[in-house]
Simulated scan of single mutants.
Amino acid sequence: MMTQEQCTHRNNVQSSEKPQVYKVGIYGWRKRCLYFFVLLLMILILINLALTIWILKVMNFTIIAVQS
């Protein structure tokens, strides 16, 4: 069991220490660049998919194999 004196001493020590606050994550221009890069990558993926489908339609590719 702690005495009243030990309890107040412990509270004084804890309140006198400043808690360290660490920033977790990406902030500022790095965050904007990361978002821009992800957006650019998504646009390129969509363009690639659209062009692939267009080429398949234009070249008349089919899944059925031709037998000789």
Score class of each variant (00 low, 15 high):
1 M>E: 02
2 M>N: 10
2 M>A: 12
3 T>Q: 00
3 T>A: 01
4 Q>S: 06
4 Q>K: 05
5 E>K: 06
6 Q>F: 01
6 Q>Y: 01
6 Q>G: 00
7 C>D: 12
8 T>M: 02
8 T>S: 06
9 H>N: 14
9 H>F: 12
9 H>M: 15
9 H>C: 12
10 R>T: 08
11 N>Q: 13
11 N>P: 01
13 V>G: 03
13 V>F: 10
13 V>Y: 04
14 Q>E: 05
14 Q>G: 05
14 Q>Y: 09
15 S>E: 04
16 S>L: 03
16 S>E: 02
17 E>Q: 13
17 E>G: 10
17 E>M: 15
17 E>A: 13
18 K>A: 08
19 P>Q: 12
19 P>R: 11
19 P>L: 02
19 P>A: 03
20 Q>K: 10
21 V>M: 12
21 V>Q: 07
22 Y>E: 11
23 K>L: 11
23 K>Q: 10
24 V>F: 08
25 G>T: 00
25 G>A: 01
25 G>E: 01
25 G>F: 00
26 I>G: 00
26 I>W: 00
27 Y>L: 03
27 Y>H: 02
28 G>N: 00
29 W>S: 15
30 R>S: 04
30 R>P: 04
30 R>F: 02
31 K>W: 09
32 R>Q: 15
32 R>W: 13
33 C>F: 13
33 C>T: 12
33 C>K: 15
34 L>N: 05
34 L>W: 11
34 L>T: 04
35 Y>C: 12
35 Y>R: 13
36 F>Q: 07
36 F>L: 15
37 F>I: 07
38 V>Q: 05
38 V>C: 02
38 V>F: 05
39 L>V: 15
39 L>Q: 11
39 L>K: 11
39 L>M: 12
40 L>G: 15
40 L>E: 05
40 L>V: 05
41 L>D: 04
41 L>M: 11
41 L>Y: 09
42 M>T: 09
42 M>P: 02
43 I>M: 12
43 I>A: 08
43 I>L: 10
43 I>K: 06
44 L>A: 08
45 I>Q: 10
46 L>R: 06
47 I>L: 14
47 I>P: 00
47 I>F: 09
47 I>D: 03
48 N>M: 11
48 N>P: 04
48 N>K: 09
49 L>F: 11
50 A>R: 00
50 A>W: 01
50 A>Y: 01
50 A>C: 03
50 A>M: 02
50 A>P: 02
51 L>E: 03
51 L>S: 04
51 L>M: 09
51 L>F: 05
51 L>V: 11
51 L>H: 01
52 T>I: 04
52 T>Q: 04
52 T>E: 07
53 I>G: 01
53 I>V: 07
54 W>D: 09
54 W>Y: 14
55 I>N: 07
56 L>S: 07
56 L>A: 07
57 K>V: 14
57 K>N: 14
57 K>C: 11
58 V>D: 05
59 M>F: 13
59 M>K: 07
59 M>I: 15
60 N>F: 00
60 N>G: 07
61 F>V: 09
61 F>M: 02
63 I>A: 09
63 I>Y: 05
64 I>K: 06
65 A>V: 08
65 A>L: 15
66 V>W: 00
66 V>K: 03
67 Q>N: 13
67 Q>C: 12
67 Q>Y: 14
68 S>L: 09
68 S>H: 09
68 S>D: 13
